[in-house]
Design a protein around this nucleic acid. Structure first.
Lengths: 156, 156
DNA sequence: TGACAATATGAATAAAATTCGCACCAAAAG
DNA sequence: CTTTTGGTGCGAATTTTATTCATATTGTCA
C-alpha cells in the first residue's frame, strides 16, 4: 500500500502538517514534484483523510471533558444519530456489551455539562446514563505509530 | 482574545488546514499579509496549537478501538505515565470517581488488544480494569464549535 | 530482451509566502 | 483638543514554493 518514503512523508506531516512541500522534499531527499505526486496519491487512496488545525479547547470555553456511558434498549441507529447531533458531543462509539454507547463530550463547565446530560437522558432508546467527568487529561493524541510500518518496528 | 475575522480564519483552517494562506485571505476578503499576521498571532498566543494530518487508521493496522476503565489505588502519577507510554494508547484521562483512569486504545485486532490489556493489568497502582470494545464509531471529531464565538451563536 | 507501468528528475512558469514601509484608526497621554 | 502610541491593514517588491510537463530511470513480466 505504501513504502518507506511514504511513511517518512507521513511522519513529517504528522508532526507539522502545514510546512511547505518543498521542505518535506528536502527532508526526504527528493525532488519537490515527486513528493507532491506521492502526497496526492496518498490523498486519493484515502490514506490521508485531510488536514486539521489543532485548537486549544480552553480558549473556546471547552475546558471540561466528560465521558457518558449510554445504556440503550435496542433503538440504536436513532439514538446514535441523536447523540451525534449534539454539538458538544465529540465522539459516539457503539460498544460491545450492555452499555450501548460511549460518548465523549466537551463543554465549558459543569453547568453546561448538566444541561447536555438533561438533553441526553430523554433521547429515544436511552435507558440510563452514567457520567465520568475528566479531572485531567494526561495524554490525548491521534497519531498513528508509523514506526511499525517502517521496518524498524518496535511494538508498544 | 479574538474577533470575528479570527473566528472566520479558524473556521476555514478547521475545514482544510493545508489550503494556501492566499486562499484564506480571499475567503475573508483581506490582504494575504494581514491574514498571515493574524494566523501567526493565533499561533503565538497558543490558540492554534498546531496542524495535523488526519490518517485513515484502517490503513495502518489500527482498525480496532477500545476503552479501558482502569481502577487504581492512589499511585496515580506513575500509573498515568505508564499508561501514556504505551504506543497503542491514544488517550489517558484521569476521571472523578472510583475508576482512576479512562484509557482509549487503538489496535490492529483482538489479539493485539489482549496483549495490551495483559500489559496494563500488572502496572503499578492498577487494581482492576474493565474493557469496552468499540463495535462502530458513529462520530469522532475534534472540531470546536466556533459559531458560538461568532455572534450567531446557537448552542448544542 | 523488450514492452509497459510507475515513478523520479529538472527546468520553466504560475502562484504563494514573506518582508517591509506606509497609512489608518482608536485609545491613552499630554 | 492635539499628540503620541500601539495595533492593524495594505500593497509593492522579493524570495520561495507549487505545479506542470517533457524526459529519464527503474523494475516487472512475458
Amino acid at each position: 500500500m505504501f513504502d518507506e518514503i511514504d511513511i517518512h512523508i507521513l511522519e513529517i506531516l504528522q508532526e507539522k502538517a502545514r510546512i511547505p512541500n518543498a521542505e518535506v522534499a528536502r527532508q526526504v531527499g527528493m525532488a519537490p514534484s515527486a513528493v507532491l505526486e506521492r502526497i496526492r496519491k496518498l490523498e486519493e487512496r484515502g490514506i490521508i483523510e485531510g488536514y486539521e488545525v489543532r485548537l486549544n479547547p480552553a480558549c473556546f470555553h471547552q475546558g471540561l471533558s466528560a465521558f457518558v456511558q449510554v445504556e440503550t434498549d435496542g433503538t440504536d441507529a436513532q439514538t446514535a444519530a441523536a447523540l451525534a447531533a449534539i454539538s458538544s458531543v465529540q465522539e459516539v462509539h457503539q460498544v460491545v456489551g450492555p452499555d450501548g454507547f460511549l460518548v465523549k463530550l466537551r463543554t465549558a463547565d459543569h453547568t453546561t455539562l448538566a444541561k447536555i446530560l438533561r438533553q441526553i437522558r430523554p433521547l429515544p432508546g436511552v435507558r440510563s446514563i452514567r457520567t465520568q467527568v475528566v479531572l485531567e487529561t494526561v495524554k490525548e493524541t491521534r497519531r498513528v505509530d508509523l514506526a511499525e510500518h517502517n521496518g524498524n518496528g518496535r511494538h508498544s
